[in-house]
Each structure stands twice: as structure tokens, then as C-alpha cells.
Simulated assay, not measured.
Amino acid sequence: MLVQALLGEFLQEAESTRKLLNAIPQHVLEYKPSENSWTTGQLAWHIAEIYNWYPYTVKGAEFNMDDYEDVERDYSDIDKIRERFERNFSKAKESLESITDENLDDLWKMTVGGQVAIPETPRAQIIRGFLMNHIYHHRGEMIVYLRLNGCKIPGLYGPTFEDEQAMQAKQ
């Protein structure tokens, strides 16, 4: 039952991620709002890449980032970033469909460089916090990046402020 709830949320939110990635124009990929920020392209790639972490999180008891099968990153082409998202989304969906409610209680941890980065935590909590909420957080950042560049923002949870203003102006 819990797996089905997580899968339902995952599918709905992945569509919102897809809308947001599709709203990113090529010309803003090198923009970054501050010296300490990622570029728009780096942030978009990271959002797409988090979906690749689902199989590592769902199938094993430990995600060792040192063994992570990353690909050569390309922050300069929005079409490649969108393609990366679609491939990773498919793997993430397949991994969530393979898990059972009983597996959600299993403990999971992340290590990097021989150090524990995330201590043993029930898998359900990791799926919601480390994966899902992580994506939502970065989508929020991306919306700010796009707004700062004057780009149209898609409505992820209904009409945007701009959409509402346009509707009121027509009345």
C-alpha cells in the first residue's frame, strides 16, 4: 500500500519535473545567480541525475558514491539534459515498481570515501527525504533561476501567479 502511494506521488511529481525541464531555454544554461551557485545547466543536470539514484537506493542496503556509475556530464545542451532525465526517470520508475512494502522498512545508508554520509535509515524515509524532497528542493531553486531570467514558469500545482494575473485581466 505504501509503495503504491510513493509510486503515485513519484509519477505525479516526475511530470512536474518534466514540465520544468521543458521550460528551460538553451540560452540560460550558463546563468548562475551568485558566485557560489551552480549554473542553470548544472542545476538542471543534477535534478535529472537524482532520478538515477533510485535504483541504488531501492535495490541495495548501501549506496557507495565512490562506485556510482556516473556519465560524462554535459551542462551545455538542454536537450541532452532532458534525455538524461527521461532515461533516469524510466530506471527510477522500474525500481520503485519492483519494491515491496516490507522492503521499505529495510535499513539503508550512504557512504563516500569510506565515510558514512547518511547513517542507516529506513528505506521509506530515504525515498521520501533523500530522493523525492531533494528533487522538490532543487526544482524550487530552478524556478527562481528561471524567474530571474524572465522565463515563463509552468504551473506545477495549478496556475502560476502570472497565469492568475492574466486570467483576472481578462475578466
Rank of each mutant, 00 (worst) to 15 (best):
Y157A: 10
E49M: 14
Y75C: 13
D66N: 15
N36F: 12
L11P: 00
F130V: 15
R128H: 01
R139C: 14
S37D: 12
I153Y: 08
F63N: 03
A48T: 07
N22M: 08
L2F: 03
E162S: 11
R84P: 02
E164W: 11
L107N: 03
D101I: 11
I24H: 02
Y51N: 02
R147D: 07
R18L: 13
I118N: 03
P119A: 13
I78H: 03
Y136P: 04
E141S: 05
E30T: 15
N103H: 08
I81H: 04
L2I: 12
L131Y: 00
W53M: 06
V58W: 00
P33G: 08
Y145S: 05
P55K: 09
Q4E: 08
P25D: 01
L21G: 00
H46G: 08
G129R: 11
M110I: 12
R139S: 10
F63I: 00
I143Y: 03
F10L: 10
V28N: 09
S76Q: 14
Y145K: 12
W53E: 03
I81R: 10
P25S: 06
A61E: 15
F130A: 12
G158M: 05
D106K: 15
Q171I: 11
A5P: 05
L2D: 00
K109Y: 03
N22R: 07
L2H: 02
Q4H: 12
R73T: 06
L131K: 04
F161E: 14
K80I: 06
G41N: 04
M132K: 07
T111F: 01
E162Q: 14
I50S: 08
K32H: 14
Y51C: 06
S37I: 04
L6M: 11
T111H: 05
Y56C: 07
I118S: 03
Y75K: 03
R128K: 14
H138Y: 02
A61C: 07
F10Y: 13
V71S: 13
A166E: 05
Y31Q: 10
A23T: 05
G8T: 10
F130L: 12
P55V: 10
D77F: 14
M132I: 12
V3N: 08
F161W: 03
D79Q: 15
E164F: 13
P25E: 00
L11W: 00
Y56S: 08
I81N: 02
P154V: 03
A166Q: 10
I47N: 01
M142E: 05
E94I: 11
T17W: 01
N88Q: 11
I127N: 01
P55W: 02
K19W: 08
Y157C: 12
Q165I: 15
V71N: 09
Y54R: 07
V3I: 14
W38R: 14
Q42C: 04
A44Q: 02
T111M: 00
V112P: 04
P122V: 12
Y157R: 09
A44V: 09
I126M: 10
Q26F: 11
I153P: 11
A44W: 00
